[in-house]
Design a protein around this nucleic acid. Sequence first.
DNA 1: GAAAGTCAGGAAAACGATTGCCATGACGTT
DNA 2: AACGTCATGGCAATCGTTTTCCTGACTTTC
Lengths: 331, 331
Amino acid sequence: MATLAGVSPGTVSKALNGRGTLRPETRLRVQQAAEQLGFVANAAARSLHSGRTYTVGMITTDSIGRFSIPLMIGAEDALGAGQMSVFLCDARDDPIRERYYVRTLLSRKVDGIIVTGRRTETRAPIGPDLPVPAVYAFTSSSDPQDCSVVPDEADGARRAVKHLLAIGRRRIVHVTGPEHHHSATVRATAAAEALAAEGFEPASMTLYGEWSEAWGRQAAGILLSTGAGIDAVFCGSDQIARGMAEGLREAGRDIPRDVALVGFDNWDVMVQGCRPALTSVDMDLEGIGRTAAELLLAAVNGDPVHGLRALPCRLVPRASTAVPADPGRRT
Amino acid sequence: MATLAGVSPGTVSKALNGRGTLRPETRLRVQQAAEQLGFVANAAARSLHSGRTYTVGMITTDSIGRFSIPLMIGAEDALGAGQMSVFLCDARDDPIRERYYVRTLLSRKVDGIIVTGRRTETRAPIGPDLPVPAVYAFTSSSDPQDCSVVPDEADGARRAVKHLLAIGRRRIVHVTGPEHHHSATVRATAAAEALAAEGFEPASMTLYGEWSEAWGRQAAGILLSTGAGIDAVFCGSDQIARGMAEGLREAGRDIPRDVALVGFDNWDVMVQGCRPALTSVDMDLEGIGRTAAELLLAAVNGDPVHGLRALPCRLVPRASTAVPADPGRRT
DNA sequence: GAAAGTCAGGAAAACGATTGCCATGACGTT
DNA sequence: AACGTCATGGCAATCGTTTTCCTGACTTTC
């Protein structure tokens, strides 16, 4: 490279990076030679000198899934714009594998690490005394000094309930996943509190089950048989909501006229496949990924942020809540 | 590091890498010091000397989606076992962005590049005269000299048809996505040929539409209204099949007794959410990703493989084809 | 016409690990 | 006792780039 342009390596560096004082002519000659050879500076050599690699590691604790992907897209978005590359590591919920990946990432001298997962639950930090900053996205670290970015699931549940109240529904039930699941209890509690705050009681106890369509259908049967006179169901996931929609429809209930329905996750195939199209709570996973990446960059640049940051959810209204029961209280 | 163990840097290297002739005692001392300091060799410095980075780039031409992820998991699996790390790049179908990513990957001196996408269609090579090997997974390169690993979609379609014939169905229809979509036509053609090969005619023309549940429901209506006396439907995707199942069920048809149903993709949420559970064709995306990674490693190690490699599909039977119409010809 | 000042670009050290070669010292052998 | 041999581990070059310092040539000015 240096020989083709007839200059020294040092001059090549200056020419391509816009440093030093060079004749415009020389600079151009070097640039053209680089172009011709398809020359790109060796990142390893560069980082050896600068101490920065412009690289971050991304560890998913769980097999890359529906939640992790939008997070990654968001993060890659925020980082890619800043010329950084992402090392993808799938730790598969295996602590050994995770430690191994952390080691690898550290040996590659990543500038920082983003930790994501499938659950919003708190998890143990990826390691004590890391030489680089780490940010937890979607999951949060059990160390309050760590930086975590999570969805405000309680906020999402409140939005769902308020939306149902706003369209005039009063007899609202919450059907969700297993009681031992963090998200299920957080959402259920927030939903109950939101109802209570407006002076209403839940139409029945929260129904805990699984995160599946089958449970949604089953729960529909339970609700119909108890004759509770439900006029709205807030489901803990879009899959449950979809099963619920099927169960209610097959029992002759009209959605949203007889029963309004709100899901959670705003998962495209579910909300679109549902009949009618499903109103749902969106956790803005891309936004969480983006925010996490931005906070990581800030930490890398010397402005670390500590503690938990909960991002608000967004309610996406669709046909399943489109007709107000009480014409006097339109949305 | 060297000072803690009281030896020279060269000796540290020898001790940790098992090279040179050292006293076992010295080796141990160095290893313990490394352990104590959490010392891991700087990968950049190492690769500078060795010329290898033990890193591969992975470019998805399309936003990371349902197809790309299993591919990545498979690839990461095959590579991770060999101590390699993966750079994830999402080119979002933007050629400019893609070229930029290729440049970045080359500057990072990746040992090789895997190119994946959402469609099985042929695409232009990521670049001429790459200094490192590239393997195309799921998509294929238009240059026949390039190495591509794709699912054998025709094989999948044949398996679906043969399965339906094996359970005694004779009046089979194919309902699939848009006619301009490569996968749709390949699968449709193969299905028709498989039928013809066994001496049967399709019960009606292939119905082209969209890759959606709504189209599946609509197609069910079309089939029922034409009164074609269908006894099986092979759908080009699980989403179409699920819509079809709903449409048929609501018209009073029993699946699989009246009409057997086969989908394509074996997408868990769809095949499980479908009632009854959907028999589907699995393209073994993880296997494709794994194979691609293995071929890439082979190329990196000097054994390049050229040309297209099509991996067979797998039929996963479930309830939607569980009851043979003709007791005499059980599966 | 000579001293001072400018400017372009080369020389070399540094980054951190690897590795071939060499120096040192402890033995054994004659 | 002198020499040879082997084990051990240090030295220094190397990888490719950046960056600091410095030199040499040219211009300017009195």
